[in-house]
C-alpha cells in the first residue's frame, strides 16, 4: 500500500541571493551596475538536497543550531518560500503560529484584532463569529477584550495570539519555539491544548532547541546541520545522537 503523506520534500534545495534587496536602492544599483550584477549571482545555500516525508497525524520535531535552516524549512512548508530545486508537496491547510504581536494592530481592540488575525489565518467572518467566545474564554482576557491592544502586556498579547491560532481550522500546525506563552500555568494549559490537537489527528511541526520539549510532543525528529539532514527518524534515536553531540 502506498502511504498517504501529508508533507513530502523531494531533493529540496533553497538558496538566498546574497543581495536580494538593494537597500541602497536604484541609485547605487545603477552607479555600481557591474558589481550589482555580479552580486546578484552570489548565493547562500540554506537547505541542501533535503528529502523526507511525513504522514498525517505525525508530529515532527526539528532540531539544529541557529542558521541550520530550520526557519527556512518552516517557510517552505507554510508556502511563503519556494524551493530553488526539488519539490515541496503539502496537502491540507497550514497554520503557522505567529510571533509576538504579528498581524495585530495596537490601536484596535482585542476583539477587533481577533477578527483581523483570524481572517489573515484563513477563517471566514461567520466561522470567527461562531468561535469568538471560545477564543476569548481560552485567552482569559474577558475583562480586557474591548480595550485597545496597546494597553495589553506582552504576555496578554501572546495569550491572545495563541488562543486565536488553536481555534483555526488546519491540518498542519507549525510551532516555532513559541510555547513560552504567558505565565507558567498558561504554558501548561497551552501544552495540554496542543496535545489535544495532536490527538485529534493534526500534524504538528515543532522547532525547538530544547530536546525535552520535543520528546514530550513528537514521534519523529529531524536534525538539520548546515542545511543538510544529519538524521531523520524515530524521536528517541535522533535525540540520543543529538544530545551526545552536544
Amino acid at each position: 500500500m502506498v502511504k498517504d503523506y501529508i508533507i513530502t520534500f523531494e531533493n529540496v534545495t533553497k538558496w538566498y541571493p546574497l543581495y536580494n534587496v538593494f537597500s541602497q536602492g536604484f541609485k547605487s544599483f545603477i552607479l555600481n551596475f557591474k558589481n550589482s550584477l555580479q552580486n546578484l549571482k552570489k548565493k547562500k545555500v540554506v537547505l541542501n538536497n533535503i528529502s523526507f516525508s511525513l504522514e498525517k497525524g505525525e508530529c515532527l520535531g526539528i532540531l539544529g543550531r541557529n542558521g541550520a535552516g530550520k526557519s527556512t524549512l518552516l517557510g517552505l512548508i507554510a508556502g511563503v518560500l519556494h524551493p530553488n530545486k526539488g519539490k515541496v508537496k503539502v496537502k491540507g491547510k497550514v497554520l503557522p503560529l505567529l510571533e509576538l504581536g504579528a498581524g495585530f494592530h495596537p490601536e484596535l481592540t482585542g476583539r477587533e484584532n481577533i477578527f483581523l488575525n483570524a481572517t489573515l489565518l484563513g477563517m471566514t467572518k461567520n466561522k470567527i463569529k461562531e468561535r469568538i467566545d471560545d477564543i476569548i474564554k481560552f485567552s482569559e482576557l474577558e475583562d480586557y477584550i474591548d480595550q485597545p491592544l496597546r494597553t495589553y502586556s506582552s504576555g496578554m498579547i501572546t495569550r491572545l495570539a495563541f488562543s486565536i491560532s488553536i481555534f483555526i481550522d488546519s491540518d498542519i500546525i507549525l510551532l516555532d519555539e513559541i510555547l513560552a506563552v504567558g505565565d507558567f500555568r498558561f504554558q501548561e494549559k497551552s501544552f495540554e491544548k496542543i496535545l489535544e490537537l495532536k490527538e485529534q489527528g493534526k500534524t504538528i511541526i515543532f522547532v525547538s532547541h530544547n530536546p525535552a520539549d520535543i520528546k514530550k510532543l513528537c514521534s519523529k525528529a529531524l536534525w538539520l546541520e548546515n542545511g543538510k539532514i544529519k538524521m531523520f527518524g524515530n524521536v528517541e534515536q535522533v535525540l540520543e545522537s543529538y544530545v551526545e553531540m552536544l
Binding site: G75, A78, G79, V80, V94, P96, L98, E99, G101, A102, G103, L120, L121, G122
Partner: peptide
Amino acid sequence: ASIIKKIKF
C-alpha cells in the same frame, strides 16, 4: 512584514 513572512494569503 511580520505576517507576510509567516502566512500565505
